[in-house]
Amino acid sequence: MNLSRAARWVLRGATWLGLAFLYTPLIVVAVLSFNTATSLSWPPKGLTLDWWRKAWKVDGPSDALVNSLQVAVVATIIALLLGTLAAFAMQRFTFFGRSSLSFLLVLPIALPGIVTAVALQNSFSRTIDLGLFEFRIGFGFHSLVIAHATFCVVVAYNNVIARLRRSSANLLEASADLGAHASQTFRLVTFPLVRSALLAGGILAFALSFDEIIVTTFTAGSGFETLPQWIFANISRPNNVPLVNVMATFVMLVSIPLAWMAQRLSDGDGIGTGR
C-alpha cells in the first residue's frame, strides 16, 4: 500500500501516543513512591527513600506478599500439570467433545471475574452432601489455590499446545523407530521440547495468580490476605498512600521483567496471556 509521508507520520505519532498512554501512569506511580509528601499530587514535593525502607518493616505488606507468593506457586504447579495434560490430549487424540474442551478451558478467564468469584464463593461455602459423606471446602489458603489454579490452567495449556503444534510428530516416530520406549521418548524428546514452554506458561500463570484480586476477595475468607488485597484495602486510607505507592512499584519491578522473560521463552509461540 502506498501511503503518503503524512499518513505514515500520523500513524507513527498515534503509535507513540498510544505507548505514552500505556507507560505514563506506571511511571507516575513509580516516581510517587519516592515522594516526600503523603498525597498523590503531582509533581512530587521532594524525593526520599524512606517509604521503601519502611515498607519492609511494617508487617502488613510483607505478610501479604508471602501469602501471595505461596498461593501463586502452588496454583501454578497445579495449573501446569492440568494444562499440560489437556494440551497433550488435544494434540495427540481426536475424541468426542474435543472442541468443547477448548471452550471449557477458556471459560474461567473469558467470564467476568465477578461471575467466577460469586460462583466459587457459593460452592465453597456450601456443605456438599454426597450421600456417603459430606464435606465443605471452606475458605483459606486451600480455597484460594483451588480458585487460582482453575483460571490459570488455560495459560499453561496455551503455551504447551502452541509448542506441541509447532513441533513435528516425526520426532516421536523417529524416537520410537530408534527403539525408545514411551517413557524414554518422553524423557529425552518430548520433555526437552516443551520445557521452555512450561517455564513460560508457569511464569505467566504465576503472574496471573499473583495479580488477581476479584476472585481472591471472594474466595480467601477473612483470615487470609494477599498483596493485591492489602493494596486494595489501603488505597482508600490516606495515611498509607506512600506504602501503597511502594508496593505498587514493587509489583511492577518484579512482574514486568518476569513477563519479558516469559515472552522470550515462548518466542514465536504466540503469547499465551490471560488476564
Binding site: G18, D211, S255, T273
Partner: peptide
C-alpha cells in the same frame, strides 16, 4: 512494549489512574 504493561498489576494500574486523575 505494548504487552508489558499488561503485567504491571491490575490493581496497580487502576491505582495509577487515581494518581493521574486526582
Amino acid at each position: 512494549a505494548v504487552l508489558m504493561p499488561l503485567w504491571a498489576g491490575y490493581l496497580v494500574k487502576g491505582y495509577a489512574w487515581k494518581a493521574m486523575l486526582r
